[in-house]
């Protein structure tokens, strides 16, 4: 409007328009740039993922006995300090308390010293079964919905009676990252049965001997 009035004052000369009126878009572009930058910086693209874990129920009633598991299939994994993993098979009997066996050592890498090799070795039968099933479902002409595949795999897992039963324990100097990593290894290796249990005093003692830390554990008095 203002421009039109000015032009009339100037003498009422009307310029014949040659071009379409040109809108200056620079301020708009500036604003858009700002908005885009703002949104780009505040957006969370990758949504965080979650990993489920079920812990064993706490036994509050003294009379109920904890479930028994086969010692030959049991594998104890203890998360130690400095990202180390210690493990021993089976169970430690009461008569061995004064003469604790040495612990085997592993780490989180995927090479020969890693815990993954050991788990895959022990879980070979089940892992192969799951792998074959996955391959077959890929080859199959009809595409099965992912729900039913997951169901079949979990059925394979519950039916399995060869794989190890892994008891995960953590020494107090371990960190949360180790805990998540070991649970991750469980799902990578397709371990059917694993749980997290509180660490026993003899486990702590063995870790301290293996890692060369001064012992902080007091041996409980026999009842």
């Amino acid at each position: 409007m203002a421009e039109i009035i000015q032009e009339e004052k100037a003498g009422g000369k009307r310029k014949a328009k040659k071009h379409a009126p040109h809108i200056d878009m620079t301020p708009m572009v500036d604003l858009m740039c700002l908005l885009i930058t703002f949104f780009m910086l505040t957006t969370a693209f990758a949504k965080a993922k979650v990993m489920n874990i079920n812990l064993p129920e706490k036994i509050k009633d003294q009379k109920t006995e904890p479930p028994k598991i086969v010692a030959s299939r049991t594998l104890n994994i203890i998360l130690g300090p400095n990202n180390k993993i210690y493990y021993y098979p089976g169970v430690i009997k009461a008569e061995d308390y004064n003469n604790l066996p040495p612990l085997a050592e592993a780490d989180f890498s995927a090479n020969s010293n890693g815990i993954r090799q050991l788990l895959l070795e022990r879980n070979r039968t089940l892992f192969r079964k799951i792998d074959e099933f996955k391959k077959e479902s890929l080859k199959a002409k009809t595409i099965a919905p992912p729900d039913s595949i997951a169901k079949s795999i979990s059925k394979l897992k519950t039916d399995d009676d060869t794989g190890p039963i892994v008891l995960i324990k953590a020494y107090k100097k371990a960190n949360y990252g180790n805990f998540v990593d070991i649970l991750d290894e469980m799902s990578i290796c397709g371990i059917a049965r694993y749980t997290f249990v509180p660490i026993a005093w003899y486990d702590e003692k063995m870790v301290e001997t293996a890692a060369g830390i001064a012992s902080t554990v007091t041996t409980p008095v026999k009842k």
């Binding site: 990758a46 965080a48 993922k49 979650v50 874990i53 079920n54 812990l55 129920e57 991750d184």
Partner: peptide, 18 residues
């Protein structure tokens, strides 16, 4: 985890990145 177990929470979601 102990506090949660005392309050009868046994199922957890651990938040991780992919």
């Amino acid at each position: 985890l102990d506090i949660m177990a005392d309050k009868n929470v046994f199922k957890f979601n651990l938040i991780t990145s992919l």
